[in-house]
Deep mutational scan, measured.
Amino acid sequence: LSCHYCHSLFSGKPEVLDWQDQVFQFCCRDCCEDFKRLR
């Protein structure tokens, strides 16, 4: 899998964000929080 925010590859459990009828996967909570802050 690749992170939607930083595009790094990861194999662990992703942080998942269901936002505006789309599902995004992130490598860590920090990337998820940064993505939400920018949107």
Rank of each mutant, 00 (worst) to 15 (best):
L1A: 09
L1I: 15
L1R: 02
S2C: 13
S2I: 15
S2M: 14
S2A: 12
S2D: 15
S2H: 14
S2N: 15
C3Q: 00
C3W: 00
C3T: 00
C3F: 01
C3P: 00
C3D: 00
H4K: 13
H4E: 13
H4S: 14
H4C: 14
H4A: 14
H4P: 07
H4Y: 12
Y5K: 15
Y5I: 07
Y5H: 07
Y5F: 12
Y5V: 12
Y5S: 10
Y5C: 09
C6E: 01
C6L: 00
C6F: 00
C6G: 00
C6Q: 00
H7G: 12
H7E: 13
H7P: 03
H7L: 11
H7M: 06
H7R: 10
H7T: 12
H7D: 14
S8I: 15
S8G: 14
S8P: 00
S8A: 15
S8R: 15
S8M: 15
L9C: 05
L9N: 06
L9Q: 11
L9V: 09
L9Y: 06
L9I: 03
F10N: 03
F10D: 01
F10A: 03
F10H: 08
F10I: 06
F10K: 02
F10Q: 01
F10S: 03
F10V: 08
S11R: 03
S11F: 03
S11T: 05
S11M: 03
S11Q: 04
S11I: 03
G12V: 04
G12R: 05
G12F: 03
K13F: 06
K13M: 02
K13E: 09
K13Q: 10
K13W: 02
K13V: 05
K13P: 10
K13T: 07
K13Y: 03
P14N: 05
P14R: 02
P14E: 04
P14W: 02
P14T: 03
P14L: 02
P14C: 02
E15C: 09
E15F: 08
E15P: 01
E15G: 02
E15R: 04
E15S: 06
E15H: 08
V16Y: 08
V16A: 07
V16C: 09
V16W: 04
V16E: 07
V16F: 04
V16R: 09
V16I: 06
V16M: 10
V16Q: 09
L17F: 07
L17G: 06
L17Y: 04
L17I: 09
L17A: 08
L17S: 04
L17K: 03
L17E: 05
L17H: 08
D18T: 11
D18S: 10
D18F: 06
D18Q: 11
D18M: 13
W19Q: 14
W19R: 13
W19F: 15
W19K: 13
W19V: 13
W19H: 12
W19S: 15
W19C: 14
Q20F: 13
Q20T: 12
Q20E: 15
Q20M: 15
Q20P: 13
Q20L: 11
Q20V: 10
D21T: 09
D21P: 05
D21W: 04
D21Y: 03
D21K: 11
Q22P: 07
Q22C: 12
Q22R: 13
Q22F: 10
Q22V: 15
Q22N: 14
V23K: 14
V23Q: 14
V23M: 15
V23R: 15
V23H: 12
V23C: 14
V23S: 14
V23D: 06
F24Y: 05
F24N: 09
F24C: 12
F24S: 03
F24T: 08
F24E: 05
F24I: 11
F24A: 09
F24H: 11
F24D: 03
F24Q: 08
F24K: 11
Q25I: 06
Q25C: 07
Q25R: 11
Q25L: 05
Q25T: 10
Q25N: 14
F26L: 03
F26K: 02
F26A: 02
F26Q: 02
F26T: 02
C27R: 01
C27V: 01
C27N: 01
C27T: 01
C27L: 00
C28K: 12
C28A: 10
C28N: 05
C28D: 10
C28Y: 02
R29D: 11
R29Y: 14
R29P: 11
R29I: 09
R29M: 14
D30T: 12
D30M: 15
C31L: 00
C31D: 02
C31F: 01
C31Q: 01
C31E: 02
C31W: 00
C31S: 00
C32D: 02
C32N: 04
C32A: 08
E33Q: 08
E33I: 04
E33F: 06
E33K: 03
E33D: 11
E33Y: 05
E33C: 05
D34A: 11
D34P: 03
D34K: 09
D34R: 06
D34V: 07
D34C: 10
F35L: 01
F35W: 06
F35T: 02
F35M: 07
F35C: 02
F35S: 03
F35Y: 05
F35H: 04
K36Q: 10
K36M: 14
K36C: 04
K36G: 08
K36R: 07
R37P: 06
R37V: 12
R37M: 06
R39A: 03
R39M: 10
R39D: 15
R39L: 04
